[in-house]
């Protein structure tokens, strides 16, 4: 990451690894080696998936498997593209649910966190703890009652309904994270906004939100990843093929038609499923900067 915060101006040392007098040089090499090893460990399966996806379908299914593809082929991708109602539909469903989850999370978590962080809400500490308790209840325990509830009000088998389920799962964490972000803003900034004539909403919109950008981005990322990868809820709530999301589709691809697992198509699906996650990381990466508040006080 080369893009540093604007705070760099006041901290000439920022951006360089701090050199502490007496620190042994080789310590840093060891740390680097450990990091590289971990990265390699994480990337290996992804890399193998990528390789498998560009083999011919026959080679992809070969046992024992080959490491490097003997011949390159995009057949697996074409197969996934045309799978059942077609990849575009599944992609759209997944993206729509993820997008709605993000929107619901932000619309609910931002005001809730703002209120809990900056207003004298009576009993807000208890409220907050109750909210966090949601994190401790296993999701699997909630799915069945939620399904019964949602079918009653006609929200099962709908993208909005699934997005709501994902929102329910993601909300406690979002509020928790955003509340901490809001609390980190110095009181004087709020008071400056108040004396400058802002009401609570204007303070939120014009002063606070830009300052919790990093928190918002984190919430968006986590909501996206969680929703994008979520399987159990989607499996239970979606019974129509045209409503399936990518994870459901992948499982179906894997199962194949005749009991044999179509590894090549599966890996192609995995690669396609990973791409949006990488894209959103890269896209939002620059907002992960530290020092949003630098220059505010002192």
């Amino acid at each position: 990451m080369t893009s540093m915060s604007v705070g760099t101006a006041t901290h000439p040392a920022a951006g360089k690894a701090p050199t502490i007098a007496g620190e042994k040089k080789h310590t840093r090499y060891i740390v680097a080696a450990v990091c590289i090893f971990l990265i390699a460990l994480m990337l290996f399966p992804v890399f193998m998936s990528l390789l498998a996806s560009i083999k011919t379908p026959a080679e992809a299914m070969a046992a024992p498997p080959t490491y490097l593809p003997h011949a390159l082929s995009l057949d697996n991708y074409f197969k996934v593209y045309d799978y059942q109602v077609g990849l575009p539909v599944y992609l759209f469903n997944s993206l729509a649910v993820a997008f709605l989850t993000i929107v619901f999370c932000l619309v609910l978590a931002v005001p809730a966190a703002y209120g809990l962080a900056r207003f004298p809400v009576p009993g807000k500490e208890i409220l907050f703890v109750v909210l966090l308790l949601g994190l401790m209840i296993p999701y699997q325990a909630l799915v069945t009652p939620l399904y019964l509830m949602f079918s009653k009000i006609g929200l099962s088998n709908s993208l909005v309904g699934l997005a709501l389920i994902h929102t329910i799962v993601q909300l406690p964490f979002s509020v928790f994270l955003l509340r901490n972000s809001f609390e980190a803003i110095p009181k004087a900034l709020e008071e400056a906004a108040v004396t400058d004539g802002c009401n609570s909403w204007q303070t939120l919109w014009r002063v606070f939100l830009p300052l919790v950008k990093a928190g918002i981005v984190t919430v968006v990322l986590f909501a996206f990843i969680a929703s994008w990868n979520e399987f159990l809820g989607a499996l239970i709530f979606m019974s129509r093929e045209s409503n399936f999301t990518i994870p459901i589709m992948l499982v179906n691809v894997r199962t194949g038609q005749h009991g044999a697992i179509d590894w090549g198509a599966l890996q192609a699906g995995v690669v396609i499923a990973v791409l949006p996650c990488i894209a959103i990381y890269v896209l939002l990466q620059k907002y992960y900067m530290s020092g949003f508040l630098s220059g505010a006080v002192k």
């Binding site: 110095p186 004087a188 008071e191 004396t195 004539g197 802002c198 505010a296 006080v297 002192k298």
Partner: peptide, 16 residues
């Protein structure tokens, strides 16, 4: 905001 006063804070409180 309606008191016709303006305040300069010890910490400056500039919008970063």
């Amino acid at each position: 905001a309606k008191r016709q006063i303006a305040m300069v804070f010890q910490s400056y409180a500039l919008y970063p």
